[in-house]
Amino acid sequence: MDIRLSACLIYAYANLSVGMIQRARYALTVVQEMRAAATEKQPEMRAALSFVLSTAAVLLHLPLPEKLPPMQEFLPMLPMGIRMFSLYVTAHYTYLQKDYPKSLGIVEATLGMQTEVYPIPCIYLHLVAVMDYMSLKQTDKAKQHLLAAWELARPDDLIEGFGEHHGLLGGMLEAVMKPAYPEDFKRIIAITYRFSAGWRKIHNPDTGHDVADNLTTTEFAASMLAARGWTNQEIASHMNISVNTVKYHITNAMQKLDIGSRQDLKKYMLL
């Protein structure tokens, strides 16, 4: 069953990334069936299955599946690296509830308690901190966490998480990565386009939330900040572009979305 679970995970993620949504859904359905079939005598397997289902729901911004135990119940049964990633999922879920200080507390506690470095969960934890601090409009602290994530990612080219989280990072990739690491930035954005296309094909119909799928990544980043109430000058200063360029990107976004007000951007953003 361990091998089957791993295969389902790889199959779901791979098909999501290439836009084969029905296949990705099928893999997650198989995991749900495995979770229902697992007995009380298989606590570690039940924990692993619960982790996978919780992770899928949170990363796709979907409601948590019914009858899943609270994460704190199965967390101790997970291996340490997976446990840290599960805490990233918890922090991400808390971010989605807009409790940014609590989410940051989970991140800082998890990073502070680790006895050895697990690069992938640490990268993802730092990225949640970026999301939290950008939501709190504390850009300097957001930048610190982005650079910490980047230092962990660079040795083994673990850049997927940056592309997957682009829309939630509030233009931080454009502000920090694009000028300092232009070639890496291009590769990250390629991941963003590929991943987000599949992500929206599950998220949008399942939630009724029509996250924009026809904007460039720069238009999306500027529009996210505008939808959060940032002024054009604040966006320009943050993203290292001119005010006129900000206006250009937001105007393009509004035209593509067929809306006439910055307030209407909220309907199409990840807020």
Rank of each mutant, 00 (worst) to 15 (best):
R35I: 01
T216M: 08
M134D: 01
T231A: 09
S17R: 15
G208W: 14
G105Y: 01
H209Q: 14
I10C: 04
D157W: 04
L125C: 03
T94H: 10
L9M: 13
Y118K: 04
E44R: 15
I3K: 15
A57I: 06
A37M: 13
K178F: 01
T207S: 10
W150R: 08
T94F: 05
M71R: 07
A226I: 06
M45S: 04
L96T: 09
Q114G: 00
S54P: 02
K256G: 10
A91L: 04
K247Y: 09
W230V: 03
H165T: 01
A38Q: 03
T39A: 12
M84N: 09
M80F: 02
G171M: 08
P69E: 04
D184P: 03
L225D: 04
F195M: 12
T29I: 00
L169K: 06
D206G: 05
L5P: 14
K256H: 06
V128H: 03
S50R: 05
L62D: 02
A148F: 02
T231I: 04
M172F: 05
T110Q: 09
E219N: 09
Q255G: 12
M113Y: 08
L78R: 02
S223W: 10
Y118S: 06
A36V: 04
I188A: 11
A197G: 03
G19H: 09
F220M: 14
P205C: 10
M77F: 08
S242K: 07
P69Q: 02
Y95E: 08
A57W: 02
A149W: 02
T94N: 01
L78A: 01
Q32F: 05
V128F: 05
Y268M: 11
Y100K: 01
V117K: 08
L265D: 06
R200L: 08
N15Y: 13
K137Q: 09
G19R: 12
K256L: 14
V176R: 12
C8H: 11
V243Q: 13
A38I: 08
R35Q: 12
A236Q: 10
P182D: 12
A149D: 00
D258S: 15
Y88D: 02
P119Y: 01
P65S: 03
V18G: 06
F195E: 07
N204V: 14
I259G: 14
M239P: 12
A47I: 06
L152K: 04
M254N: 09
K141G: 00
K41S: 10
K247T: 11
P121R: 01
L265G: 07
A212M: 07
I202M: 15
S103Y: 06
V18I: 14
T39M: 13
F220V: 06
L53T: 02
R4G: 04
L104N: 13
R35C: 02
H61S: 05
Y93I: 00
N204E: 09
V31Y: 09
Y124D: 09
S196L: 12
D132I: 02
N252I: 08
R262T: 06
Y26R: 11
H92S: 07
I241W: 11
P69C: 05
L78H: 00
F195D: 11
T216S: 15
M34K: 08
H165P: 00
L62N: 07
P63I: 05
L111H: 03
M239Q: 05
L78E: 03
S54H: 13
A175I: 02
H126F: 04
V58Q: 12
T115R: 13
R23S: 14
K186H: 12
G161P: 11
F74N: 00
F51K: 11
E164R: 14
C8K: 05
G170F: 08
